[in-house]
């Protein structure tokens, strides 16, 4: 039995339950960052909305997962606290689309993506796979046992962003 754990907008969940699947719906300009340690089967998913908390410190105190700069360190710390090891982590990114309702303003999806990239580079973290940009919304399913990440776009069939680690995905 799989146990779906839904990650809301501006939220983050860390799991070490190998029967769980982290799910986040309808990423538009938002970005989801998935990190996974295959050895201890710990995974975390952060669904962030904005690049920088600098303009909104109070909000960042209350909801740090809304912002890339406050959310990403907490995502990694959360996974380390559950036993993940930095050198084994596989990191993937999805989202950052340019949504229709943002016509006329600077593309927030791209800004989110650049902010994420900048933070990861500063931390010396390389990305295993990414599916970003474009104009479509994406839904993410992240299997904690195998590390497999599947994406589903609006009106398109699901595809694999990160393959399951050999032997670990019992649902295939």
């Amino acid at each position: 039995m799989t146990n779906p754990i839904v990650v809301g907008i501006g939220d983050c969940k860390i799991s070490r339950d190998p029967d769980s699947v982290l799910v986040t719906y309808a990423l538009g300009s938002c970005i989801a960052i998935m990190i996974h340690d295959p050895l201890v089967q710990v995974g975390g998913l952060l669904h962030l909305m904005l690049p920088d908390s600098g303009t909104n410190r109070d909000k960042a105190q209350e909801k740090p997962f809304m912002f890339a700069d406050t959310g990403i360190p907490l995502l990694f710390q959360g996974a380390y606290a559950k036993g993940a090891n930095r050198s084994r982590l596989a990191v993937s990114i999805a989202g950052g689309a340019q949504m229709m309702d943002e016509a006329g303003v600077f593309n927030i999806g791209k800004r989110n993506y650049l902010a994420v990239r900048k933070i990861l580079w500063k931390a010396g973290v390389l990305v295993q796979a990414e599916d970003v940009g474009g104009v479509n919304s994406r839904t993410v399913h992240f299997d904690i046992a195998s590390g497999k990440v599947s994406l589903r776009g609006a009106g398109t069939p699901s595809h694999e962003l990160v393959a399951a680690k050999a032997g670990a995905d019992r649902r295939n």
Binding site: R86, S87, R88, V125, L126
Partner: peptide, 8 residues
């Protein structure tokens, strides 16, 4: 160098 050192 930094990029290569990030590859674990």
């Amino acid at each position: 160098r930094r990029m290569l050192e990030s590859v674990h």
